[in-house]
Design a protein around this nucleic acid. Structure first.
Length: 424
RNA sequence: GGAGAGGUGGCAGAGUGGUCGAAUGCGUCUGACUCGAAAUCAGAUUUACGAGCAAUCGUAACGGGGGUUCGAAUCCCUCCCUCUCCGCCA
């Protein structure tokens, strides 16, 4: 959510930046509703003042023992008028709020303008391995190794679900533990948090109302399965004023993520790339406003560290205005090399949401010398999507015979195992 | 799932129709006293929106929403949440 005052005072700039995001929000209507809301408030407040004064007077008279029965009902008309105006204001505010929820965060000035095609690669890290055989896709490798099975998962749940077996499951757990341990060293507190959240939480983090069709929902309880731990983490401090000394707050949590993937029929139908349920380790930060830009760079660094230690080649991309996340001012994607597809695929997304989420969730802090509470800035980043890490590892570390070498850093998490071989 | 209790300011805790945005205590901050500190004394101490250059003023908020009334923290309806006991359960 944007600051209405800011939109009011920077109309031209807001219009331009939203245009760059291909946001179709009617800013004229927004400003008009904002104006009406304020005009109505001014005139109803004047009436309320009159009513309050008169009511107080009656209270005083009654206390002095005077008979006020003659006045009873005299203020009815004014009271009714106020009620009517309040209703009108509510209606205007409802429209305004509905509109304001559709506006994405304004992109940072140095974010490239345009759609997906304008995303800008910043750097490539790690050597691409030269295979002396044709690298197999992970779904083939996994199936042959007996550690990955989509058919059985489909029997249980349907398309876009997976199951891991034996060392495959252990590898998933090893990766998760490795990531969480690393993030702890990087200063993140490990949390376990709800996977089912209420509407308000989805709205606060920016999922709703725009992406409501992408969420799995429970019919009876009005709860939603999280598409990312970001939702739960962002909402932990909703409505709180955090002590300045407690910032920055850095959290890491491992959760499954659930996505309906509506509108992606036919895309990435094979393998672990796109699923209704996958595991992810997520990092989240609450920071002081002036520190969020730098915090984003460090956050990306923290995510990159996982890939570096695992020895997986990747590249860093800054997303263009039309491709960045709805709530963010700037988003970096980390893309891991997938040999069988001969391309890089997203494995982490790191965003600075500035005060966009904290405004929706009223998350504030107070500065040292006192003063008004200010909104904190929030940042989120995957560290990493575990399933995609699993597949990248299989593909990048495969050998001609179909076995997979385990990177050094992961071996302690697998009881010293150095290679996954086909079971006989 | 059954029965009951309760949700008030940073915390504790009064307040059952009328100057109640809210007693009191604790905490916090400022000042006095002190070489300094403790103790003591005095004062201050919510947030949002709006008007104003500003001082300031207005409105709203006692879990959320609705109702009764000139007037609601207080009465009524409804939803949510928390706690206790019983049952069930990983």
């Amino acid at each position: 959510m944007l600051d209405p005052k800011y939109v009011r005072e920077h109309e031209t700039e807001v219009r331009q930046t939203l245009e760059n995001c291909k946001s179709k929000v009617n800013i004229s209507l927004y400003l008009d509703l904002d104006r009406r809301r304020r005009d109505l408030t001014i005139s109803v407040d004047k009436r309320k003042e009159r009513l309050n004064k008169a009511s107080e007077e009656m209270g005083r008279m009654k206390k002095e023992g005077q008979d006020i029965s003659a006045y009873r009902g005299k203020l009815q008309e004014l009271s009714d008028e106020i009620k009517q105006m309040d209703n009108e204001i509510s209606a205007v505010e409802k429209d305004f709020h509905e509109l304001e929820l559709q506006i994405c965060n304004l992109p940072d000035a140095n974010v490239p303008v345009g759609g997906e095609e304008s995303n800008k690669e910043l750097r490539k890290v790690g050597e691409l391995r030269q295979f002396d055989f044709k690298p197999k896709p992970h779904e083939e490798l996994g199936a042959a190794l007996g550690i990955l099975d989509f058919e059985k998962a489909a029997k249980v749940s349907g398309a876009r679900f997976f199951s891991l077996w034996g060392l495959g499951a252990k590898l998933e757990r090893a990766l998760t533990n490795f990531m969480l341990d690393l993030h702890e060293k990087q200063g993140y507190q490990e949390l376990v948090i709800p996977h089912l959240v209420n509407y308000q939480s989805m709205e606060m983090s920016g999922q709703f109302p725009k992406f409501i069709e992408q969420a799995f929902a429970t019919k009876e309880d009005n709860l939603y399965l999280i598409p990312t731990a970001e939702v739960s983490l962002a909402n932990l401090h909703r409505g709180e004023t955090l002590p300045i000394g407690s910032l920055p707050k850095k959290y890491a949590a491992y959760t499954p993520c659930y996505r309906r993937e509506a509108g992606t029929y036919g895309k990435d139908t094979k393998g672990l790339i796109r699923l209704h349920q996958f595991n992810k380790v997520e990092m989240f930060q609450f920071v002081e406003p002036e520190k969020s830009a730098e915090a984003l760079e460090l956050l990306v660094d923290n995510a990159e560290e996982v890939l570096k230690l695992l020895g997986l080649p990747y590249r860093v991309v800054v997303l263009a205005t039309g491709d960045k996340s709805f709530s963010s001012v700037k988003t970096y994607d980390l893309e891991v090399w997938v040999p069988s597809q001969n391309t890089y695929r997203e494995i982490s997304s790191c965003s600075n949401c500035t005060d966009f989420q904290s405004r929706r969730g009223a998350i504030k802090f107070k500065r040292e010398g006192g003063g008004k509470p200010e909104l904190v800035h929030t940042l989120n980043g995957s560290g990493l999507a575990v399933g995609r890490t699993w597949l990248a590892l299989l593909e990048n570390y495969q050998q001609a015979d179909g076995s997979v070498v385990i990177p050094e850093v992961l071996r302690p998490y697998l009881g010293g195992l150095d290679i996954i071989r086909p079971s006989k």
